[in-house]
Computed example of a mutant assay.
Amino acid sequence: MVRTDLPLGILKEAAWNPNQLDEKTLEKLKQSIKRYGLVENLVVRSKDGYFEVLSGNQRLKVLAELNLQTVPCIVLELDDSEAKLLAQALNHIHGVDDLGLRAQLLREILSQIKQEEVLLVLPESSDNLTSLASIGQEELSVQLQNWQQSRLTKLSHLNFQLTNDQKKVVEEAITRFIPFARGNKSDNPTLRGQALYLLCQSYLGKE
């Protein structure tokens, strides 16, 4: 394992990378990197004259948009199977928040940083952020209500397997519904997710 800075031009996204971010979340990632810089190295492996990114493919897209010249990386020597296994591990090993501690942390953040700036970086809606931050500050019944609200407004990811032709149809349908999503108030801050929801809602309403 070697830690080094590599030119952006020789880094390439893994073609088999299944991890994707919607446009809204990608923008939040960009805001985070612009505010704090790249605080987590990319994990890469050497392959056929370039370096394939195993962890950090979404960060790579943002870094390209920001025109960075070099990127701090951890270089590993792995075969295809080990590389894919490591990528899955790095992308999908997550813990579970202690809501009380997270609420306290958010209150401390919001006492020093404006909510609008916090929402640029965190993947939360305004209502969800308010609900989370208020946990521990109200009576028990209100705390439970806020906890339930935070669970309801937490965004979930759906994964679909589509052929190229099917993907074109789905993309076109979502694109057509984006103008409706822009004018629709929702707890979902992702425009494409809201458009998909309204499309499904419209279909079910016509049954």
Results as ranks from 00 to 15, higher is better:
residue 160 F to T: 06
residue 204 L to I: 02
residue 41 N to V: 07
residue 73 C to E: 04
residue 32 S to G: 07
residue 19 N to M: 08
residue 66 L to E: 13
residue 206 K to S: 06
residue 189 P to M: 05
residue 8 L to A: 09
residue 204 L to M: 09
residue 155 L to D: 14
residue 73 C to W: 00
residue 160 F to C: 03
residue 19 N to L: 15
residue 40 E to F: 12
residue 181 A to P: 03
residue 106 L to R: 01
residue 177 F to G: 02
residue 69 Q to S: 08
residue 180 F to H: 05
residue 60 L to C: 02
residue 156 S to T: 13
residue 57 N to M: 05
residue 24 K to W: 13
residue 158 L to I: 14
residue 175 T to V: 02
residue 124 E to S: 14
residue 115 Q to D: 11
residue 68 L to C: 04
residue 162 L to I: 09
residue 187 D to S: 14
residue 151 R to G: 09
residue 18 P to M: 13
residue 75 V to K: 00
residue 122 L to K: 05
residue 128 N to P: 08
residue 58 Q to S: 13
residue 202 S to Y: 10
residue 21 L to H: 13
residue 49 G to S: 12
residue 174 I to R: 00
residue 198 L to M: 06
residue 49 G to F: 03
residue 201 Q to C: 06
residue 18 P to R: 12
residue 58 Q to V: 07
residue 199 L to E: 02
residue 54 L to W: 00
residue 1 M to T: 07
residue 77 E to S: 15
residue 122 L to E: 11
residue 99 L to R: 14
residue 164 N to R: 15
residue 147 W to G: 06
residue 96 V to L: 15
residue 32 S to P: 01
residue 140 L to H: 08
residue 192 R to N: 11
residue 28 K to F: 08
residue 195 A to M: 10
residue 179 P to E: 03
residue 163 T to G: 14
residue 112 Q to W: 03
residue 120 L to F: 12
residue 36 Y to T: 04
